[in-house]
């Protein structure tokens, strides 16, 4: 039985058995391999890093080497039940467009990102420095993270785009949750996980 890192565990629990999944930034394909072996899920992963592509092939996962900034034009509308993007939103050029695309090709979107509104980030900014935290370990001058946001930012964008948030979980960098996190998610949560869909018209 494969061990799944806690964040992926939460995502896997959100995904119904036998569904079709597209995983954006699938890495070595751990999530897809797990979903295939335990939940009869089929689908594809997209990954830009050549070594991770080879790792995903090793995991017998369908992996397409591509840059997410090219969009999801290769996929048909409604081709998937879920489109997952874990810890990648903050690194793409056009997060808003990609979110739209996620809900074009998939029925539901599942997304995780580091919360820039976490108190420790805010504290470092108050001290006049760019945050460096366990979930955001890169320095400002050497980081793939170009579009950081807070929970509130993300939810405002969802409202603007008419996306309906179905579920939200916030956890710390070790993926534990706690009462303060549940009470003050935008201040206490380090990593945000959302499941969302387009609001029925």
């Amino acid at each position: 039985m494969q061990e799944l890192r806690p964040e992926l565990r939460i995502i896997a629990d959100w995904i119904a058995p036998a569904s079709r999944v597209l995983d954006l930034g699938c890495g070595d394909g751990t999530l897809l391999a797990y979903l295939r072996d335990h939940q009869q899920v089929s689908g594809y992963g997209l990954e830009i890093d050549p070594d991770k592509v080879a790792d995903a092939i090793d995991n017998s996962v369908n992996v397409i080497q591509t840059d997410l900034d090219r969009g999801l034009n290769d996929f048909e509308t409604g081709a998937f039940d879920y489109v997952v993007m874990s810890q990648t939103l903050q690194a793409v050029h056009y997060p808003d467009r990609l979110l739209e695309e996620m809900l074009r090709v998939g029925r539901e979107g599942i997304i995780t990102f580091p919360n820039f509104g976490h108190w420790y980030c805010r504290l470092q900014l108050l001290r006049g420095r760019m945050p460096v935290t366990p979930s955001l370990p890169n320095t400002w001058y050497n980081t793939p993270n170009i579009h950081l946001c807070t929970l509130r930012d993300f939810e405002a964008l969802c409202a603007e785009k008419d996306f309906h948030i179905l579920e939200r979980t916030v956890v710390d960098h070790a993926h534990r949750t706690s009462l303060p996190m549940r009470l003050l998610p935008n201040l206490m949560g380090e990593v945000a996980l959302y499941r969302f869909q387009r609001r029925a018209r």
Binding site: A54, I57, V61, N62, I64, D74, F75
Partner: peptide, 21 residues
């Protein structure tokens, strides 16, 4: 090659694609 990949994705085939530098 991506044209082929796209067609395979549309017909829901098992496919992997690597673009080698």
């Amino acid at each position: 090659s991506r044209e082929i990949v796209k067609a395979l994705l549309h017909s829901k085939k098992n496919v992997s694609y690597a673009e080698i530098e």
